[in-house]
């Protein structure tokens, strides 16, 4: 029992990342009708926003401390981040410490700007081109974006730690009445899951309970009629693209302490997120979220030692296997709408 709970928990953090990326993907598809292969790159850009903020906060100048010497007897050089001078060492130190959560604030405007310029500058011209063209041009864009990041940050993963106060693990065993130590779960992954749940909830609430969201949903159902009613639906869809970019970016920001970001992390996630979107059903938001968590949890179950002993190699292929089975038995995925993407 405790092993099962542990696997469910283990699946949740990856599932959260899949769900957040897939949600953005399917949102873009549902509104603009564009298959965005650069969405993984947006996730990666978000992660590198966190890295960049960390670098900025740590920018320091060198002073020579006359009283102390290093082990060679030379005067000791001390690096002081500029931020210590501006906010004092205590606040400055806390800011460096909490750079990943702070990066959320830093990443939102950046991702919105990137999203808007991407939509207005490129995607706009591809509304009426075939899906193959959309896939290809965004695929090209993804290559360009990740090569740019590689140029500035190199090819190696860059460790970006979570705040020290949040690093430990949480013992669910005690909470649920099992042996202490049977279900130990890192705090940050729990935070990631809660964060993802909040974002997903906020997005759904936004679409469900605001006028803006209502117009967007109407546009997703019948774009032309909404346009004929005198509503500028393109503008709203552009804003939705920026929001989707933002969601992917924030998913990336918060993911940095779990896995050190490298320039091709986006592509790795993109392929799986696409599988998730298709399994959930193209254009279905709830489907994307459900499929994201489902596949994340399944993946972690499949990597249990007992399962791997029974079916060797299953942990590597489970997602694809499930995707194949679902696509063959349910042509539109779990919750796909009729008539979407069937040409």
């Amino acid at each position: 029992m405790d092993a099962i709970i542990l696997q469910v928990l283990n699946g949740l953090d990856k599932g959260s990342a899949y769900a957040l990326i897939a949600l953005g993907l399917t949102l873009i598809f549902g509104t603009l009708g564009v298959v965005n292969f650069a969405h993984g790159a947006l996730f990666m850009l978000g992660a590198f926003c966190a890295v960049t903020l960390n670098v900025i906060l740590n920018t320091s100048y060198e002073t020579i401390d006359p009283d102390r010497t290093d082990f060679l007897g030379n005067p000791l050089k001390v690096e002081t981040p500029y931020i210590f001078d501006w906010f004092g060492p205590e606040v400055g130190g806390a800011m460096i410490e909490w750079s990943v959560p702070l990066a959320i604030l830093f990443a939102i405007p950046i991702m919105v700007v990137i999203g808007l310029s991407m939509e207005r500058g490129l995607i706009k011209y591809f509304y009426h081109r075939p899906h193959a063209d959309q896939i290809l041009v965004t695929f090209g864009l993804a290559i360009v974006l990740q090569e740019i990041v590689k140029y500035f940050y190199g090819a190696n993963p860059i460790p970006t730690p979570a705040p020290a106060g949040l690093v430990g693990s949480f013992d669910f065993g005690v909470l649920l009445g099992f042996e202490p130590g049977s279900i130990i779960y890192p705090n940050w992954r729990l935070i990631y899951f809660v964060f993802a749940a909040v974002i997903i909830g906020a997005l759904f609430a936004f679409l469900r309970f605001t006028t803006f969201g209502m117009v967007v949903r109407a546009g997703m159902a019948d774009r032309e009629t909404v346009g004929l009613l005198g509503i500028n639906i393109d503008k709203r869809f552009t804003i939705m693209f920026a929001i989707a970019a933002c969601v992917a970016g924030l998913a990336g920001v918060m993911y940095t302490p779990i896995n050190s970001p490298n320039y091709h992390m986006g592509m790795d996630f993109l392929v799986l997120s696409f599988v998730v979107v298709v399994v959930g059903g193209m254009g279905s938001l709830a489907g994307a979220v459900a499929a994201g968590f489902l596949l994340g949890v399944l993946e972690s179950f499949a990597s249990m030692a007992q399962v791997v002993d029974l079916f060797p190699g299953i942990n590597q292929i489970i997602i694809y296997l499930v995707a194949i089975i679902i696509l063959l038995t349910r042509p539109r995925g779990l919750m796909g709408r009729k008539g979407v993407m069937e040409d």
Partner: peptide
């Protein structure tokens, strides 16, 4: 299946063989 579903199915088979 056709369209993007076909693309994803072929991708899934290829990634499975790779893994």
């Amino acid at each position: 299946r056709s369209g993007i579903y076909f693309s994803i199915l072929t991708l899934a088979f290829a990634q499975m063989s790779f893994a």
